[in-house]
């Protein structure tokens, strides 16, 4: 197990390096001279040279990459062009709201998805199955910005129950996390259903019944425990989906998170912030997948003891 863990962690190093190259190259791949763009059309050549130096775009390319990498490792991504504050401070303020939003969304979506998926699988072909899958398909089909706006209209404007946006109290979490998690819950429900149906056909489920195990135990212990193995992988992939989705949801609900920071930075061409955010999102995804692999190994003894 420890062996497996160490191998998995070492395996992420090349991935992180490749991502750092892509993020570094990002500024160079933009059309035109980024230093000129940042400094403005009417800046003098000296100004442009100064901006180029402050962006770390002077000197040979490998030297630039090396400086970028060594600074990034220390958490130094330079200054935000918009706010003139260190990028790391900027991101630090926005990190936790996004983390809490995605975690809340993930937790409820996984729980609901599992329940609906198992219920649909057990009552396969009956009305519970049709109902569950109707909800799931609707959840996948609903665009989150549209759903978000509809909910604001109903619960905030008409009924006045929930705040239209912002961050702070638990009430602020309800609509954003629901909107963000709905698609994930739907995917989890469909995926759990098919995984469960497949496992339910396995010989060892029949063995459990042959032992006289009551049906509820057959479902929740013998079948679901095995169906969880593929479902865990799905959770990891869905986290990536959530990180992307948070950009839309944070904008709709004016959530002070990383997603909205990214949107704002793109609008302002705030390259240092964009670079740092892409790197951060990629790292999050890698860490989450690493965690998923560990969970996967815990759920699956064939990997744990290899």
């Amino acid at each position: 197990m420890l062996d497996y863990l160490v191998r998995r962690i070492l395996g992420t190093i090349p991935v992180i390096l490749v991502i750092s190259v892509v993020v570094f190259a990002f500024v160079h791949l933009l059309p035109g001279d980024p230093a000129r763009l940042v400094a403005g059309m009417d800046a003098t050549l000296e100004d442009v040279a100064a901006v180029r130096k402050s962006l770390g775009l002077d000197g040979p390319i490998w030297d630039q990459y090396w400086r970028f990498l060594s600074h990034a490792v220390q958490g130094d991504f330079g200054m935000s062009l918009k706010s003139r504050r260190p990028v790391i401070t900027e991101i630090g303020e926005r990190l936790m709201p996004t983390v809490w939003l995605t975690v809340f969304a993930m937790v409820w979506a996984t729980a609901a998805g599992l329940l609906i998926g198992v219920a649909s699988a057990v009552k396969r072909g009956r009305w519970q199955d049709w109902g569950g899958m109707f909800v799931a398909v609707s959840g996948i089909s609903f665009p989150s910005f549209w759903l978000g706006l509809l909910m604001i209209d109903l619960f905030s404007v008409r009924l006045g129950w929930l705040p239209t946006g912002g961050y702070g109290t638990p009430a602020h979490f309800v609509m954003p996390s629901f909107t963000l998690g709905l698609g994930v819950a739907a995917v989890m429900a469909r995926f759990t259903r098919s995984a469960f149906i497949e496992i339910a056909r396995e010989d060892y489920v029949r063995t459990a019944r042959a032992k006289g195990v009551p049906e509820q135990t057959v479902i929740w212990k013998h079948t679901l425990r095995n169906a969880l193995v593929p479902v865990i992988t799905m959770v990891g992939l869905q986290f990536g989906f959530l990180l992307g989705g948070s950009i839309v949801v944070e904008t709709v609900f004016t959530w002070p998170g990383l997603g909205r920071l990214l949107v704002d930075s793109v609008a302002y061409r705030d390259y240092p912030v964009i670079q740092a955010e892409i790197l951060l999102f990629s790292l999050e995804f890698i860490v989450i997948n690493l965690a998923v692999d560990v969970l996967y190994a815990l759920a699956n003894p064939e990997i744990r003891f290899r």
């Binding site: 060892y204 063995t207 459990a208 425990r225 095995n226 699956n300 064939e302």
Partner: peptide, 9 residues
């Protein structure tokens, strides 16, 4: 099928 009749987890 003894290979598949026991629960792997």
């Amino acid at each position: 099928e003894p290979m598949t009749s026991l629960n792997p987890v």
